[in-house]
Design a protein around this nucleic acid. Sequence first.
DNA 1: TAGGCACCTGTTTTT
DNA 2: CAGGTGCCTA
Length: 928
Amino acid sequence: MAAPSRQSLLEGLTPEQQAVVTHERGPLLVIAGPGAGKTEVMLRRAAYLVLERRIEPEAILLTTFTRKATEELRVRLASLLGPQVERLLIATIHGFCQWLLEQFPDRHPFGQPLRILDEHLQHLFVFAHVEALGLNQPRGRLGEYIADVIAAFNAYSEDLVDPEALVVHLPSKSDDPEALAVAAAYCRYRRLLDESGWLDFPGLQREAYRLLREDDEVRATVQSRFQHVIVDEHQDTNILQDLILGIVAAPEMNLCVVGDDDQSIYRFRGATVANFLRFPELYPQARRIELSHNFRSRRPIVQVASRLIAHNPLRYAKTIEAVRGDGPEVLLVTSDDVDDEGERLAALIATLRAEGAIERWSDVAVLYRSVRYYAQPLLAALAARGIPAVATGNGGFFDRPDIQQLRDLIVALGWPSSWRPDHFAGPVLALTPETVDRLAAFAGNIWELDERGLEALGITDERDRSLLAGLVALRRRVKARQHGSILVLIDEILARSGYVARCIERGDTRAVLNLAQFSRLAADFDRQERSAAPFRFGEFLRSLPERSLDEVEPEDEDAVQVMTIHQAKGREFPVVILASLVEGRLPGRERPARFRIPPELLPQVTPPEIAARRLTDPEEALSDQRRLAYVALTRARDLLVLSAPARIRRQRSRPSRFLDEMGLTAERTSAPPVPRLSLAGTRDRTRRRELGTSAIVTYATCPLRFYLLYEAGFELPAWPTVQLGNAIHLTLAALHRRVLAGQPVDEEFAADLFDRYWQPLSRHASARLEGLYETGRTAVIRYVTNWHRTFERIVGVEQQFCYPAPHGLVTGRIDLVRACPDATLELVDFKTRATAGIALIRPDFQLRLYAAAFEQAVQRPVGRLTVHLLADDREESWGWSDEERARIQAELAAIWDGIAARNFPPHPGTHCVACEVAAFCPAMTKGA
DNA sequence: TAGGCACCTGTTTTT
DNA sequence: CAGGTGCCTA
């Protein structure tokens, strides 16, 4: 691929955009309004630094807000930079902190690998330690209380509140016993975390900040590596994050922050637009560039939005130019109350489609401040008209009957007295009505029945009987504590009932996605709670805040997009309807956080006036909501519809003050005329994505397996053989690294390494695991004995690569790279399975894929591809030719097309015996 | 203008 | 369930 020239990096950009790309050194503030093309400009700047200024890619740090955004940046930058993109650090700020801690494992007490509490794990952690934290007297529901407490903990951490100082000084500032209890709990929480070696998300940042500040060597290393720091979405950084970035960029201050003060909507989570607004004050030498062309929205939309946001007192004043020119006027839909509003909006959407203003339902997005609470009337009205809609942020995960039945079954397996007859009647088991009746009439203990007993009960259906007998057997395993994990129970129930296979067969992808989410929830539980006790799992589920989990929706349907304004951020739609513009909803009533930090207790890093304003100023709260409305308005490309009900339900209410501020009056109107739109070129491009080689190989063997594992994201019980594979993999990687470092290795060293990597994985001792341990240990020792002659040829270990294929980015890691006598490279992949199992995973395809990707990335010819079969103590090799390169590229393109077309049929074959999702597969279960 | 009672309503979410 | 709003009364 030819590298883009300076010319092409600047092509098609406005002079302001070009100035951002070519800015030489020193702090740079980029104020980028909506639709200003900021992502493209940022990426071109990064590419420009590498290609024109000859900055090493490693010297560039690019941070953004979400992981999804980092993926998008990586994929898009790959088309400018090629495989070099791998060498830049593109990460969320959390990701950067994690990277930093991993770089310096001996400079902090959190070990390696880091154990990070994600959202669910943090909830579980607090839930598991309620009593130790002194929080066992919750006010209201336990789940809500834990959520509030966690919010307080995270706020304390991110504002660098010293826990000891908090308990000492809070009593003089506050007489709220609850707040005092939470402060004390925070102290214990921090101590518990430290003792157990877990890091929560704020802890990750706090620890990175501490290292950067207190450890001169870490700071010097990091500062000398990153000569350029580019920060996306800077208006949504919090105080701690901004401090971290400031230190990293400190020596030369090549700190480029990109953002829009008008789109800062994460205040409730600790983000401070002040970081962005104070940038010129903090760095007086900073250059300031405004990107004020809007390439997205028609002029009336830009005008209305600009008029609204001008009412915010603290902002950079800006004039935005609507490049796309004039368009239809903004529509105002009035209604009696929120039920009426739903009706009218549904009718409007139907009309838009009927009159050809839009071509697809998904051209329309309806935005609410809260989908959970506000969207029901619209969803009902759409459903009544048969208009498809997806509502993200609906909180309805546990409303699904299948999820309920699965949950009830699991709890009942461990705690039979929780069993109620109606738990039998659900879609997962799908028992016949007669069976359900018989079971409901039965007064005894179902778990004590065997197959004959079930027959005696009058259960005649053979499938029902064997399914129930299977559950009884499972209950016995649980009772004997032999089941291992909650994940095993889910897997067994889904496999025995055939529910997943039935869902796949009738195309119910929604069910599959939600079952996968349930499996992830259980995997989190298993990771934190080693008890595997169903009762505890039930308690955990009950402890989750009400409606805190969304029902997962399939993305690919053509459906009206109903979502929260927060979720719409960064996206665009031809038609946007901003609904429920009524006082009390947008703007809503400000409710202060349950546990507040007295500003006096904040450490000196925060200017007190900012701390105070962020937390308490009602004017700032209103500004925040105005920004929220602004974000919503500016999502629209062609048509913006505002909807203002006269009341919420019965109580009188007023139309949102924001309507006045936009210069619109909420006069009652009849149905507004529908304008004609020309939507040419407004379609979202299909998202180019990043795929690992293992995912691609999986698709190549069986698209359905790929779907279940990588699209739906099923968590499955770890098969013992997978444990073995992991341990061997880690062992060989460490062994090879040592060889590469020029240090001696022998059999004893290899065996010790294996012991180290095996032990943490074996929780339950069993004969099976003992056998696997012996197998692994032997294989590793034998490898050193018989293959040490190849060690001198090792030139790369666990070599990462990425390959910008035409359809997306392929990433992967090669176990081992050896030099060949003819100066070509040999790529080696280690396999634990015996030859019989090997044919099933297409190692030749995998290695050719590696070769195609790797030779691009390192620009050295690959001559030989090798699979090392540890179980058989032998290697198998292939050559690598132009012909094969062409073939693999064609195959890769076909795979990518298949994934993009969402084509996921099962591909049955001999490999199915080794497939962990065979029991979910219609092709397998039908035959059986 | 203050006080009391009835009635209504009910954030946002990423790492 | 709990806190706030609005209406009514004194």
